[in-house]
């Protein structure tokens, strides 16, 4: 492997891994508190992508404000879905919550199809996103560097939130044993709402970089990142925030390594090989690379 190919490989792993890590983190935030695998998470991303499309296309607002509005819409989607859809079923079975997440996902998908269009729409992104920059002799779009930088900032922010704030300590306690935290006075509704809002904020950030990469948004757009998020947490561990991040980067590493090393005749089987690896993880290391801390007792 030449130096240039190696550097390109590293940049690809770091940029793709950053995106995957953010996706997985959004899933695990909600899972950690509610034990809910949120199948509607992909649609949180789609909502933000559509907001990017509408606000970016039909207003003259500066790009940073468009981004903030898109991220805010993700947060609002997370908050409202918890308030309207999930909260009424909390305290019942986890199956009910799971079915609710499917329902939210389908309702949002159909709403996009009927209310907007089944066809994809071009999402405007700032020009500087597509500027190519040279890094150690390798040319790469600036958005990749921005993605890596944004992810580092968000991971530090999450770390500070969880380690250095009252809310973070309460959330970490609640994620380990929700019932006990609640009996110690930690308010259930607040902690769960905030987990959904954080998940929505991460979905909003993912929407920006995912749309920048694909250039468009369509009603079923969320299924791609959702699948990636699931694979990442299977690899890294569903029960740990660190595991989710590690899983995202490991997934990107394996995917890029396969692209780099597979002969061209086998490249079309890359995803199939990827899924075999995921199945192997499920069989051999079902808890993922990072052993989680969450217990079985959850929202009661």
């Amino acid at each position: 492997m030449s130096a240039n190919i190696f550097i390109e490989f590293v940049i690809n792993v770091l940029s793709m891994g950053s995106l995957y890590a953010l996706i997985a983190l959004g899933l695990v935030f909600v899972y950690g508190i509610c034990n809910l695998v949120n199948f509607a998470y992909g649609e949180f991303i789609t909502v933000s992508a559509y907001v990017l499309y509408f606000v970016g296309t039909f207003t003259d607002l500066p790009w940073w404000l468009v981004f903030l509005i898109a991220i805010g819409s993700g947060a609002l989607t997370g908050f409202l879905s918890e308030l309207i859809a999930f909260r009424p079923f909390r305290g019942r079975s986890l199956d009910a919550l799971l079915v609710t997440s499917f329902a939210v996902s389908i309702i949002l998908q159909r709403s996009f199809q009927l209310g907007i269009s089944p066809r994809s729409r071009a999402v405007p992104v700032p020009d500087f996103f597509n500027i190519n920059v040279s890094l150690l002799g390798v040319v790469t779009p600036l958005r990749n560097m921005l993605l890596i930088g944004t992810t580092i900032i968000l991971l530090i922010a999450v770390l500070i939130l969880m380690r250095r704030t009252s809310l973070g300590i309460a959330m970490r306690g609640a994620s380990e044993n929700f019932v006990t935290a609640r009996l110690m006075g930690v308010p259930a509704n607040l902690v769960i709402s905030i987990a959904f809002v954080i998940s929505g904020i991460l979905a909003g950030v993912v929407a920006i970089f995912w749309s920048a990469r694909t250039g468009s948004v369509e009603p079923m757009m969320g299924s791609g990142p959702l699948l990636i998020g699931f694979i990442s947490v299977v690899i890294g561990g569903m029960q740990s925030l660190v595991g989710a991040v590690v899983g995202g980067y490991v997934y990107a590493f394996i995917a890029n390594m396969l692209s780099l090393t597979l002969p061209s005749s086998l490249l079309s089987f890359r995803d199939a090989i990827m899924f075999v690896i995921v199945i192997a993880f499920l069989v051999l290391k079902p808890e993922g690379l990072i052993r989680g801390k969450y217990q079985e007792e959850r929202v009661g």
Binding site: S166, I169, A170, R172, G173, E176, T180, A181, G185, V186
Partner: peptide, 23 residues
């Protein structure tokens, strides 16, 4: 029923935070 992965200090802090004390 401790929060096993939290430090001793954080475990006790949750008791105080739960009744509205500042960090």
């Amino acid at each position: 029923r401790l929060f096993k992965h939290l430090s001793s200090l954080e475990n006790v802090m949750i008791g105080a935070l739960g009744v509205g004390m500042k960090r």
